[in-house]
Design a protein around this nucleic acid. Structure first.
Length: 419
RNA sequence: GUGGCUGUAGCUCAGUUGGUUAGAGCGCCUGACUGUGGCUCAGGAGGUCGUGGGUUCGAAACCCAUCAGCCACCCCA
């Protein structure tokens, strides 16, 4: 007989850990709504071509990480590996641009990439994120950055840093890359092996090399993309930083920060925390003024971010996680008590708003008492044969051990009073 | 896709140069306490030793393969 288990890189989330997940999700909903963002949910899979066009043909995601298949009708489909392209697709499909010049959208969703799992990286993972479509102005960039920042701040993430840069518009990219390649080729042989291959394959990623020797060489010889962008784009960036200063978001202008997906332009940012290990990015984002047009719409400015929920959970200090224990544990025993106990539990939940857990295993009285103590119930209700015969229950306060007798007819009134 | 480390009870882990019936702590169940939790004590349930082959009289241990987990490379959230 085969033992079934979760597929490599996927995980079950059990009730215990989901308490924290729900806390995170609830706060995301609250904060987003507070900022005027509306939730969007897109399908789990899309046409493969959407991601190829959106993310970029040469990116790792598209070339080797997508879960793609051909269905029985011959359609080439892909489980979504990121959400910016699907959101942009939805924006176009529903002609949202014609309804309103600006749309603020957010999501919480599961994504799929076939990577080798490690800390902070799994094959099915979850992100929340926001996309503001329509404004090209720097205050929109700052708003997006503040959304991400405020969520991490709320959960008191340690050793957090916000890195910020601008990579200018898409037109200057080829010019800059040419410039970069020719400068770096002069020092090619002094660089590490991976950097040497990156010169042709993905020159921007040279700046991500963890080898300090390579970084020193690059500092000396490589031109920085920020220095090659237009005055207008530099002024845009300047304005973003002015707003961040004013709203007290600490950031570091990292002139080497680049992003991996092709659709980014202008402002790019990343929030990292060293408590995460190698996969230290909590969130990444930036402008993507060219994406909507790339997908067949008219030129529309947009900016957004995406953050990994698993990574956020990893980075949260779990010291003070609140267990949710029931208000009331309802103990009953004897042949005739079950029906009445069920009725009492139902009334307390519906009429008094109590969290009530009722015994359904029919364990011994002692076991039920132990269970009531273990699950942290503040109050225990005892309904035995004697109580049933007398039409009353015993209400026991678990911290003091005090007991009261309450007539069954007065239960709702009693518990409404004690809130 | 590449490399390193690791798989024994629900959890954390012992298990001697290969040798009878594989252990402990925590957790769970029952009882001492015939209707009162936490403390204590006693008893009990729970294992195809990740899986499949091989070596051997004999494998949890040795060999091969495979799967999974962790960490790193790579990449990214």
């Amino acid at each position: 007989m085969q033992n079934f288990r979760t597929i490599k890189g996927t995980h079950d989330l059990l009730p215990n850990e989901l308490n924290l997940w729900r806390e995170v999700e609830n706060f995301v909903h609250t904060l987003m709504q507070q900022n005027g963002y509306g939730e969007i949910r897109t399908p789990a899979f899309e046409n493969t071509e959407l991601f190829v066009r959106g993310i970029g043909t040469d990116t790792d995601i598209v070339t080797k990480e997508m879960y793609s298949w051909t269905d029985q009708g011959g359609n080439t489909l892909t489980l979504k590996p990121e959400l910016t392209a699907p959101v942009a697709r939805a924006y176009l499909q529903h002609q949202m641009g014609n309804q309103n010049p600006i749309h603020r959208l957010y999501y919480i969703d599961a994504l799929f990439r076939r990577e080798r799992p490690q800390k902070g990286r799994q094959r099915q993972f979850h992100q929340f994120g926001a996309e503001a479509i329509g404004s090209s102005n720097p205050e929109q960039d700052a708003e997006i950055i503040s959304l991400a920042y405020n969520i991490f701040k709320k959960f008191d993430i340690q050793n957090m840093s916000v890195r910020l840069n601008s990579i200018g518009n898409a037109e200057i990219r080829p010019v800059y890359l040419e410039n970069l390649r020719s400068s770096v080729k002069k020092i090619k042989l002094k660089l590490c092996a991976t950097c040497q291959t990156r010169i042709e394959k993905n020159a921007l990623r040279l700046f991500d090399c963890k080898n300090t020797h390579c970084q020193e060489l690059l500092d000396e010889h490589a031109p920085l993309i920020f220095d090659s962008i237009s005055d207008k784009d530099q002024a845009h960036f300047e304005m973003v930083t002015r707003i961040l200063n004013e709203i007290e978001i600490p950031y570091f202008h990292d002139k080497k920060l680049v992003r991996g997906l092709d659709y980014y332009s202008h402002t790019t940012f990343e929030v990292t925390s060293s408590v995460l290990g190698a996969q230290d990015a909590l969130c990444g984002g930036g402008r993507y003024n060219g994406l909507i047009e790339q997908l067949g719409g008219k030129s529309t400015p947009a900016v957004g971010f995406a953050a990994g929920i698993e990574r956020l959970i990893l980075a949260i200090d779990k010291q003070n996680i609140s267990e949710n224990s029931p208000n009331i544990y309802l103990i009953h025993f004897g042949d005739e008590t079950t029906v009445t106990a069920s009725k009492i539990a139902n009334d307390l939940r519906l009429n008094c708003g109590k969290t009530v857990v009722m015994e359904t295993l029919r364990r011994s009285f002692k076991s039920q008492m132990r269970e009531a103590g273990r699950c942290g119930a503040k109050t225990t209700i005892i309904l035995g044969e004697k109580e049933l015969a007398a039409n009353k229950i015993i209400v026991k306060d678990m911290s003091t051990g005090n007991q009261n007798e309450v007539p069954i007819s007065d239960i709702n009134q009693f518990f409404n009073k004690t809130s």
